[in-house]
Design a protein around this nucleic acid. Structure first.
Lengths: 130, 130
DNA sequence: TGTTGACCTTCCTGCTACTGGATAGTTTAA
DNA sequence: TTAAACTATCCAGTAGCAGGAAGGTCAACA
């Protein structure tokens, strides 16, 4: 399969697929004309990557997960550990963003937002307020 | 004030402060020996940046906000617009992360996490499930 | 006075995960 | 035959810094 078709099937841009090859994630065979020739297995791996990345797993996490996927003697506990750690990271980010949201919401609510230069948002950022 | 002191006062690493100078955010005077010489005003601006960045405003947003801060004839509506847009971005991110969290939580819960190779997480990522 | 150590300087590289663009070769359909 | 559509490689840029090398400066202490 050419890269264009595999791109459509996996939901990843061709550029990204070439990048994944460059960093050693999925390395396809080549045709005589130099074109990449993706197998069914390659397609599954790329789709796997697309899903994992859409869950925000880092590339390095993806690499680990892909290794585990290919290792038929893996322990599911190893996979679960990667996923749990990532889940914690996400929860951490959510909580940080919620804190920011709260602060920003207050700031936005407190600012008149008219033609007047007085602005509680700027006052707060500059340290004039609390 | 030397960069070390201003770093301590503003809560920003010296590296970051030099970077902010490089991109034209806060440009200090120089002493005869070539050392950066930060004024009180510079210190306020850097602290301003530290707070804005901690709320995840992008550097370009910070640039706008700093301009508005210095423009004593600004309309507070302009500031509010920047903040509201940013707030929406944050809310968007939160909602994306919440979706991921939900999916991941289910996956983690469904995986036995033992020495067995059967793993619903990998099955799901590879497309075997759903 | 010499020296040590804590500062400061510039410059260059690297990080994440791609994306865009230039230039050129190949294949396919009209 | 020719033009469109696809493919290839390579180089540069994005955000927001951080790390490190190589070297200059300053204040204190013996």
């Amino acid at each position: 399969m050419n890269i264009g078709l595999i791109a459509k099937n996996s939901g990843l841009p061709a550029k990204t697929i070439r990048y994944y090859e460059e960093i050693g994630l999925v390395i396809p065979a080549r045709k005589e004309n130099g074109y990449r020739n993706y197998s069914e297995t390659d397609g599954i791996k790329l789709h796997f990557l697309q899903r994992a990345r859409s869950l925000n797993f880092s590339i390095e996490d993806c690499r680990k997960l892909l290794c585990l996927y290919e290792d038929k003697a893996r322990a599911s506990a190893d996979v679960k550990t990667v996923a749990k750690t990532h889940l914690q990271t996400i929860e951490q980010k959510i909580s940080e963003l919620l804190t920011m949201k709260e602060t920003l919401t207050k700031l936005v609510a407190s600012c008149h937002g008219d033609t007047d230069p007085d602005c509680t948002i700027l006052d707060s950022l500059s340290g004039m307020l609390k």
